[in-house]
Design a protein around this nucleic acid. Sequence first.
DNA 1: AGGGATGCTATTTTT
DNA 2: TAGCATCCCT
Length: 725
Amino acid sequence: MDTLHAPHDPLLAGLNPEQLTAVTWPAKSALVLAGAGSGKTRVLTTRIAWLLQTSQIAPSGLLAVTFTNKAAREMQTRLASLVPVNVRTMWIGTFHGLCNRFLRTHWRDAGLPQTFQILDSADQQSAIKRLLKALELSDEKFPPKAVQGFINGQKEAGVRAEALSAHDPYTKKLIELYAAYDAQCRREGVADFAELLLRSYEVLAANKALAEHYRTRFHHILVDEFQDTNRLQYAWLTLLAGRDNALFAVGDDDQSIYAFRGAEVGNMRALMHDYGIAAPIRLEQNYRSAGNILNAANAVIEQNDGRLGKNLWTDAGEGETLRLYEAYSDGEEAEFIVDEVRALKREGLSLADIAVLYRSNAQSRILEHVLVKAGLSYRIYGGLRFFERQEIKHALAYLRLMVNPDDDNALLRIVNVPARGIGARSVESLLAAGREQGVTLWQAACGSGTGNKKLGTFVLLIDRLRERAEGLALAEAISLAIDDSGLRAMYQEDKKDGEERLANLDELINAAAGFFPDDPDNALVEFLTAAALEAGEHQAEAGQDALQLMTVHAAKGLEFDAVFVSGLEEGLFPHENSLADSKGLQEERRLMYVAMTRARQRLYLSCAQQRMLHGRSSYPIRSRFVDEVPTELVKVLSSRPKPMPINQRAPWLDAAPSSADRNAAGQRSADSGGWRIGQSVEHAKFGLGVVINAEGSGDDIRLQINFAEHGVKWLDLRYAKLVPA
DNA sequence: AGGGATGCTATTTTT
DNA sequence: TAGCATCCCT
């Protein structure tokens, strides 16, 4: 590194000049354009450490915000290794985590119950469904997801229902729904994710003294992944920063891949404008990837416009060229990848250092299929997380009810789980009672008195649980709830997957035993909050060495020795839903950029000429992104002919026997009676090819096949020996 | 209360 | 194609 400029302070040793500039930036706002693999996290944590070490700020005077819990944890861990501070007491966390902390302190100002509970997306959706039912609106006309999107979108723009107006009746109704939903949440003492942010913002905006208090406190505000902030988050940050505090934002506009959920890359320019930042500090030296990979990625991202501008470089040499493989079919693409992974493994790479990336989750299926066949261990990111499991949600619902009985979502979830004779009609009348009296279901259940004996027993159960949990350690309280609610017994009866669910419930008790609350008297509320804000790892650690499979989105922030970017086809990557406007396409290109910059040494690009999509064969063309990579950086591993365009299908093909469907799905079948256009086949003499046309019927069928080595031929099925390939 | 039939849809996802 | 949600029936 640059020893000439590096001061003697060991904290700063080894930083390159740009990193050093960023770390030792004076107490004023800055935007750091941090390219992939440029040491972003290091800069962020080292700056905090430097500010502390040089006594420019006390640990309490600093606010550091990230998007994910993982990033927050990493920052805390690394900071703790640099300077002797208690990172737990510092305001380092996610936007939502910090807002939650704020609201737990200022719950009165925020008009929330002290024990308010947090709705995750699924909870929010069921709350909305319930609301739609209560208002007798068809979820045909008002799809819960759309309503949810509307509400969250407005909240993330900082807009309440009262501030909205519309002329068309549909939007009017949506606004009404938004208002009714918020009223419902208030009644039940719950807050959704966006609400945490908006409410915090509003409390600060409405309370000058409080805002001033925090502004006097937080002289340095640091933000990670700034390109992912939404409007509300930016407003919240600027509110806290005021005029005098330093807003130190780190981000990369080229890695902005979350516009679809409200991220505003424009916040980067806004920050420069609003805080008089003349130019961003650019971190362009990359410590991750070989030169060829960087040059390829640079060439692709250059096709975008409106960039702040950045060019990654490395002094580590060119490394290997990229490899491109064009397969006949999705199945053959998967086989290629698996073969190649095996070869890499033989060369000494461990599977955990290899990743297969794809644009959409559905693509993992075929890869899994081939991996299982090959006996390679793999790990797929995505899917159900721990706190999203049914049995965990059930258990948490009991706990939530103990803490806040007005939580209707929680009550509805478990009022009859396990079955206690409170069926649909009892629930209906309870809902009706609540609606009539304008109270929560719990209040209605208590009020009904002798009306429903079974409901009374349920109320008693919850009350007794609450009393008995008093004074118990967290893990014991949870264990008690699981036992006395009957959940444990219920899963003991369940032959199907009861065993696994019981194991998960025990895991929940374990998690509670290892949970250290800030305030022991408030352990249960804190635990429930943590469960909502941090739903857990995406999948249990596979433990052993396993190939990593994930979407490109999930790969952001990670790196691997070898990376396969698969399914590089028009319509898939870039995805067809993004092709309508250039904004969408440019986000897809950033996605490609993210994918490519995950690789340290070797980068494979692959695509297929035939792919099953929504149950049909499609014949995509190779992604434009592949062609945006300079050819001299790519070694083409295969160049096989594309199937001819299909102008007309033979009528009999559309009524193909079921065996044809199975063949088309990529499974080998002993019965090779049916063939499909686009299907890969193998011929003893001509080798591999693709069916491109057909004629005849019954015994007299002729197929036109495009062979890789021998070109296009017509074959008579009566004589030709063909096998699916 | 749960299982089977039916129908619809089909990116990306953290908190 | 397949996964799901919903509905209807037992």
